[in-house]
Structure formats: C-alpha cells, structure tokens
Design a binder for these strands. Sequence first.
DNA 1: TACGTTTCCGAAAACCTTTAAGTCCAGGAG
DNA 2: CTCCTGGACTTAAAGGTTTTCGGAAACGTA
Lengths: 337, 337
Amino acid sequence: MASKRATINDVASLAGVSIATASKALNGRQDVRAATRERVLAAAAELSFQPNALARGLLSGQTRTVGLLTSDSVGRFGIPVLLGAEDAFGAGEMAVLLCDARGDAIREQHHVRALLSRRVDGLIVVGESTDPRPSVSRNLPIPVVYAYGPSEDPADVSFVPDDVGAAAMAVNHLLALGRRRIAHVTGPAHYKAARDREEGLRLALADAGLEQAGRTLSGAWSQRWGRHAAEMLLMAEPEIDAVFCGSDQIAAGFVETARERGRRVPDDIAVVGYDNWEVLSTETRPALTTVDMNLELLGRTAAQHLFAAIDGKATPGVHRMPCQLVIRDSTSPPGVS
Amino acid sequence: MASKRATINDVASLAGVSIATASKALNGRQDVRAATRERVLAAAAELSFQPNALARGLLSGQTRTVGLLTSDSVGRFGIPVLLGAEDAFGAGEMAVLLCDARGDAIREQHHVRALLSRRVDGLIVVGESTDPRPSVSRNLPIPVVYAYGPSEDPADVSFVPDDVGAAAMAVNHLLALGRRRIAHVTGPAHYKAARDREEGLRLALADAGLEQAGRTLSGAWSQRWGRHAAEMLLMAEPEIDAVFCGSDQIAAGFVETARERGRRVPDDIAVVGYDNWEVLSTETRPALTTVDMNLELLGRTAAQHLFAAIDGKATPGVHRMPCQLVIRDSTSPPGVS
DNA sequence: TACGTTTCCGAAAACCTTTAAGTCCAGGAG
DNA sequence: CTCCTGGACTTAAAGGTTTTCGGAAACGTA
C-alpha cells in the first residue's frame, strides 16, 4: 500500500507553485505559462496524484455519479438495461452506484435515501416487469428515469418496450408466411406483458380479418408450462399451423412437445418466442424466431435521457421503444429449412 | 424538485443551536441535553435533512463505498457474486460502485483510477473464468479481493470455487449409485475450470480403482456440443452407465440426444451437470443433478473479507470455497424415479 | 467569597479542491 | 517619466461535516 495519498498541495509544493496554479495547470486552464504547466504535470505524475472526487463534488455540487435502483435482483431484465446504461455513462466520467431493493418498498426507500445522501446526480429505476410501479420521484431533488417498468405517474420519464407493436410484428411475420390458424400461449394474465402481447396479436389478426385459433392459454413463463400447453393445444386445436408464445421458455417447451407428438417445426407448426434469451433461443432445435426487446438499447436510451434531465431538459411520459424480430429456423418457409 | 438541500447549518439555525451541537445531537454523541437533542432531531426531520456524504467522507477519509470491477459484462457468474456482495454490504451502510471493463485491460485501468479518485474503501474484482488473472492491486492504497477468478499474485486475496473437490463429489455420488463406467464431456481444455473438474474426476476414479470410460471429450460449454458429444460417445462407448458433464448446457444437450437414441436417463445412463443454472437444470427432463458453486455465498464471503481487509485484517492467498451437489432426477437410483 | 467540578454548548480547524479577486511586474503608449 | 494593459501567479473563500478544545453557567465545598 502506498503510504499516503498525494493532494494537490503536495503537487504544488513539489512544483514550487501555489495550489491555485497547480489546479489551473492540471485542469488545462489559461493563465499559466507552458513551462510552469509542465513542471506541475511532472510533479503530479511523480506523486501519481489523483484529484479527490469528494472535494471536487462538494464544491461543484455534481458528483458525476448516478444511482441504479433495481427491484428484481438484477435479474433477467435488469442486466442488459444496466449494461446499456453503464455503456452510455461509462466511456465518459460517470459512475454507477448499484442498489438492489429485492422487491421490498421499505428497502427501496432506504436505498433512495442513501443515494441522496451520497448526492448522486440522477437515478435510474429498473422495474422487474412492465407493470407500472409506484413513483419514487415525488419531491426528489434529482431527476429520475424509469426503465422497463414504467412509473405510475405520467409526469415521470419512463422507457418501456413496445410489447403491443412487437407482438403485432411477430404475428404479421407468421401471416406473411401464409399461416392462418395461429394460437397463443403466454404467461400469467396478471402481467401487463402478457396482456400487451395478446393485444398485439389481436390487432394483427383483426387487421388480417382472421380469428385466433382457440383461446389464449395463460399459465407461467416456464418451459414446463410450454410443454403442458402444447399437449392441450394439439388435442383441442389439432389443425393449428402457428403458435405465438409469450416467452422463449414457453416456446422451447412447446417445440419439444410438438416434436414428440410428431408435428414438424416449422413445416407443420411455426413457432415464435419472446425475449431472445440466447441460451434458449439459439440452442433449441430448430432455433427460435423470437422478439428481442433491445433492452440494452433501452437502458442506453434511458441513461441518455437521464443526462438530458440532469441538464434540465426532461421529456416526461412513457416512451415505447421498438423491439426487433429475430428470425431463425422455427419459422422458416417450407422447403427452406 | 425540492428547492434546495438542507444542511446541518439550516438544522442548527432552526433548532437555535450551533452546528457543533447539532452534529453531536444527530450522531447520538454525549454532551448534549436531552431536550436540546430532541429539538435538533425535530428540526432535522422538518427539513428532511440528509447529511452530505461527500463532506463526511472528505473529513473522515472513509466513503463507505466499494468498487466492484467485473470483466465479463456482469454475465452468468458475475451476477450471483455481485448479489452476494451487495447482500453483505447492503443491509448496513456500504454502497457498491459498479464498473464493467468488458475484458479490456486498458478500460480496467481507467476504471481503477476512477474508483481511486472517488476514494472507495476497497475493491472486489470478479473474474470471467476461474483462470488466474493479472493482479490489479500492485501499489494500490486500498485492499482488493478477487472473486471467482483469482489473482496471479499469491499475496492477493482470492476466493474461487473448489472445482476439483466438487467434481470428485459429483463422481463419488455416481459411484455410490453403483455406476462404474463413467464418461466425461466438458468445455474447452484451455479453461482451468475444465481441467480442474477433470482432475476431480480422475482423483475420485483413482480412489475407487476405476478407469474412466473413454477419453475426456473437450468442446464448448454449449448444449449443441453436448448433443454432438452424446452422438460420438454413445457410438464409441455404448456401455457407459454415467456421464459427468462440465456444464448444465452440455448436460442438457446430452440428455436430449441420449433420450432420442433410446437411452433412458437415469436408468440406463445417469447424468450430472455443473453450474445449477436453473433455467436449464430444473427444466430439462429429467431435471439435472448438478453442482452448485454457491456463487452468492462466495460473493458474500469475498465482501466480508474485504471488510476485514479494510479493517486491517487481511487473509492473503487463494481460498477455495466448497460447492454443493444438488441431486435431482437425472441420477435417481433405479426404480425411484 | 474563592475555588473546583460538572454539564452543556460554541468557535474554529481540518478535509481537498476550484475559482473569484487581487498582487506584482514587465513592457508599451502617451 | 508616468500610466495603463495584460500576463502570470497567489491569496482567500467556499462547500458541509466532524471533532477538539475552550468557555460559561450552575452547583457544591471550604
């Protein structure tokens, strides 16, 4: 361990100037002779001087730090958002203070206070689902943006994936392949994500003047449920030619069971998943066509808008971010597979 | 947004005392009358006063903040470690400053400097694999602990899963079930994890006086490779009765192909995976017996030892943390399934 | 009254940096 | 020669908190 951290005072003494001059030299300001600046820089290098961000922040009122508050144990959805945010901040000077509330409102409040006391410049709140969540920003002295899970308060700034549009896009893809008897298997109906994706399906089918094949099957987001739903669906609606699944896990389960029951994917039944969770979507056979919510982009965008808000240019409201359909073998046109 | 943040000065004025007295009252120190303390506390509450952590840190030299430096984009292994660390810190007062070096040494240095300038009290470095990595702690004025991926420097403090012991444990489990012809499919041989796990297998077999069934098959960590290896293995060594896989992905692929080839799991072939990645291990049929590396515990332990190191009690060396065998259906004794 | 003790409170320094304002000096213009 | 200008540098204040030390009041004792 180095003995003691060098301060700008040490640098100034070593260079034989005042601390004011040292500061100016180090920050590239005017009013300092080239020779002097060089002496200061040399001294700083020799002492491996690092300016104390605390002192700087105390003075300027800006810490160049943002808080990232997640509720879902930094789970499946938090990570990419976090990465995108870190990406937007990272290259520059911003740092991210990470807090996990583990879904507990009390703990969340506690973390908000801790972050406030650390004088973060802003806050990103990552939801655990796309269901609107209570606002945390009432009377907060710093800007807040919500990612993935929007705030209940429309005056807040929120970024969410456009589930409705993405589902419609997925279904239109199936329609373009000539599929006409499309079924829907999805997660628990109390999730807004499930309802939104069903809504997108409904819209796309209505546009095409078609009826959905059978009723929507709501269960869990799991592979197990996908297998179970496949059993039921193949029994009840034997002549379906496509399935839109609410998650890749469901789709993976569906594909597995369909194959065991002698249905070929995609020839007999085309399957579309959701999430583009690569460990599943690229490893099932056939690989899954699926919706990628571009969460990393979403996180990056949220971070950029947080910057804007810090600079005083807020853009309130819920912003729906476009998703992307990743086309793989589970929806190849016949003969192409 | 609230107008302006209250300082201890505002609190003191409102309570009609000096800032020194206010500080003492707020921090529960002696030398302040009960009535006065109450007045101060009331004033603080009214102004919703939050002490400025910057000022406090500047004075005390302690920020109650640690840096968490990850190389693997907070991937599969970083998350649980991070959670464990956050857990150990969280309840109390510590905060975590997250940095992702994305595997780039330059960026890593940059982040270390940034963290240093923010005066973090310590650093946790999370590796992307169990291969030893260059030390980052040379001449750093703060303690550093390494989690998952150890430092090359034995004077540093590192925590890694005990892959050798865990593999031996897994194989002993197979032996206890009466399996005698055990094969091994694992990831790329240049990974220390792959070599360590093979070593554990070797030791367990040697103890039992047995030979491995066929040679170790090294490929990728993927499901695809698991399927491919299964094809080869069932051809080359048809009479194997157990397989030890280097990852759950490999195991999932193996199980799938084995079933398609008419081998029953676990009756004909018992399968053990590695990682306990639940989306795979609990969703395959049958569910996988697998090694759980207890990464969350590892992260928590690393964090606790970082605390100890901050308090001056370091424990240098590479600490191997015990793993745990999670027994599921893929190794049920015959007739129990 | 003089003095010591206890209890409570306030003044001021310290932490480190940035910046506004001020000082000093050389050189050019009048 | 005087005055002004501008460049190069220094002084000092500010930012919010904690802590040390000293001061004042109240009270008891001689």
